[in-house]
Design a protein around this nucleic acid. Structure first.
Lengths: 135, 135
DNA sequence: CCCATCTACAACCATTTGGTTGTACGTTAG
DNA sequence: CTAACGTACAACCAAATGGTTGTAGATGGG
């Protein structure tokens, strides 16, 4: 289910996404560009590092799909791509929903336990913990 | 503007968070543990790498605050920490909200433009580029 | 035309990362 | 007690990262 259509790529795609977000300079570049597209050289002027270093950061953001570059005369304007942020959020949602599902299951079990009718329901498979009652 | 209370640390904290999420194995560990806590050795059995490697991945997740370890006899149970996922989402929200603010501003300008000019011109819309003269 | 600017890219270096193996230590089972 | 299991940690290695400098190609202004 869940439309795994491109499940293959999504692993590497998500890798690149989060990797790009895992650097303070790159997040700052995103914040600046989200307020209005900027040329690479103007961006570079804002950081205590070389032009080439900033250029590399922009490349990482670009390969992650977080920004796009557009030529304008001799400058290259960098702009953020809002869809990518949404994809990242979606990846987090997946984790969070899994957690929520687990909580739901647990509270369901708890409610049932309270009622005492313990049927053959117990999914020992999940826990994989054979250690129910050692000790 | 909700100035992030603890903006100092949050940079490194967010770094660690996204870095931990930028690896398919670690994301898989999270998915497994969110369904129920698992011992490190049981986790290790699920991947085509050594125990020590998985141990390192768990350490990365732990330092990012994404999981906690709890000793149980001679095993160490790993469980996900849902708050961390929310922190990551919050960091994304920050970016997305900035983008939304910009869109609001733009649609305001567009509404004004609609009645004014129809030419191939782009009015001096790049106000941002001129204001940032820090040189 | 000439020059200054902006960009692209290669080569290089230090550090980190992700993986391995090996060893040591605490805990539980027989 | 001893053996087996689960963990922790150090040492080591190849590859990727994040940074530097240097060189070269386009583009626009005077």
């Amino acid at each position: 289910m869940v439309v795994d259509g491109m499940a293959d790529e999504s692993a590497e795609t998500v890798d690149r996404l989060f990797h790009a977000l895992a650097d303070a300079t790159r997040r700052d570049i995103l914040r600046r560009c989200v307020r209005g597209e900027l040329s690479v050289s103007r961006l570079a002027a804002a950081y205590p590092m070389s032009f080439a270093a900033v250029q590399k950061h922009v490349t990482v953001l670009e390969r992650a799909g977080l920004v796009t570059k557009e030529r304008r005369g001799r400058e290259q304007l960098v702009r953020t791509e809002p869809d990518a942020v949404r994809r990242a959020r979606q990846a987090l949602d997946e984790l969070e929903s899994a957690w929520r599902a687990r909580v739901d299951r647990m509270s369901g079990l708890l409610a049932r336990d309270a009622g005492a009718t313990t049927g053959p329901v117990t999914p020992a498979r999940d826990g994989t913990t054979t250690e129910g009652t050692d000790r």
